[in-house]
Design a protein around this nucleic acid. Structure first.
Length: 313
DNA sequence: GGCCCTCTTTAGGGCCTT
């Protein structure tokens, strides 16, 4: 099975999903939250988040609100992800002649493919923290996306990069990463197929996103599921430099987006925007290089393949 | 930090991620 054949269905679904958002402006998901509740004695605690993008780009400034109420059985989140103008822009995306029908059924897929991205307080996985997390299941459909701010419990000095300031996240109603992990685990379980792995996809994931994730899990003293596999699109993109060097001189996500003429939806360097970009870039890369899903799985790695952090760090 | 390239391999610089 080629990845492109999967994308044929999923990017149509992605487009439809984005289109459906434009009518409501909201994505809603309900997730069990028992682990957190156990830790907090079943107390109800409202969590709300308001985000404004970087002020230097007024024309693309976006906002969304997240509200979540922890309850004895469930937690609900409402996320206004994009402005109407951004969504109309997304709807105009050309989907590379993707057929209208979904090829295959979910149970035929060899893995659940989750494209994710993080924003952080800096580059050091040891000393910096995650402040935003976004993920999209390529299968699409209801509850296929999660996006949230994270409280790093420290000052943010690189707000000029992503527009996320200390005042936006360093407050009690923004979840810390250890509080977000149960939500993430429940989300993955809701997307995972029986006896099949989860394949996480990130750009420069091996050196950046995955180590950050690993450190956050270790600091939270929660073990990462053993069937989580990761694939890095950076070395895949580098293969194109060898075969298409005249056209592709840089393999940054921004350059890949420009190379493939993918319109920028909202502000770059925000987690969900980069996830959406990477979804399209992944489709183009695997199509050009004729990469199948099994080949992608062969290139995957586990957190145990990465260097282990020193205790207490 | 990991990977890649070259003026290389007993090394060093640049890219990529925020």
């Amino acid at each position: 099975m080629s990845l492109y054949s999967i994308f044929c269905g999923n990017f149509h679904q992605l487009r439809n999903s984005i289109g459906s958002c434009s009518s409501t402006g909201l994505l809603k998901c309900g997730l069990l939250y028992r682990t957190v509740l156990q830790n907090r004695g079943n107390k109800t605690r409202p969590i709300s988040t308001t985000i404004l993008a970087r002020s230097t780009r007024k024309e693309s400034k976006q906002s969304f609100k997240t509200s979540r109420h922890l309850h004895s059985e469930s937690v609900e989140s409402s996320i206004e992800v994009l402005k109407q103008s951004d969504l109309e822009h997304l709807k105009s995306l050309q989907c590379y002649n993707i057929p209208q029908k979904v090829s295959g059924v979910k149970t035929d897929w060899p893995a659940t493919i989750l494209v994710f991205d993080i924003e952080t307080t800096g580059f050091s996985r040891r000393y910096e923290r995650i402040i935003e997390f976004a993920v999209r299941d390529l299968m699409g459909g209801k509850n296929s996306t999660i996006q949230t701010l994270i409280n790093p419990e420290r000052e943010i000095k690189n707000a000029y990069v992503h527009g996320i300031s200390s005042s936006m996240v360093c407050k009690p109603d923004i979840p810390r990463f250890r509080e977000f992990i149960p939500i993430l685990l429940q989300y993955v379980l809701s997307r995972q197929m029986a006896d099949k792995p989860v394949l996480w996809v990130a750009h420069n994931g091996r050196s950046f996103d995955v180590p950050f994730l690993m450190y956050e899990f270790q600091r939270s003293k929660i073990e990462m599921p053993g069937d989580w596999l990761f694939v890095d699109t950076l070395p895949i993109a580098r293969q194109l430099i060898g075969s298409d060097g005249e056209k592709l001189k840089s393999v940054s996500l921004d350059n890949l987006r420009e190379h493939y003429k993918i319109p920028l939806a909202g502000s770059a360097h925000r987690a969900m925007q980069d996830v959406i970009t990477l979804c399209y870039v992944l489709q183009k890369l695997t199509f050009e290089l004729k990469l199948t899903v099994p080949q992608l799985l062969e290139r995957s790695f586990r957190v145990s393949d990465l260097s282990t952090p020193r205790p207490g760090k």
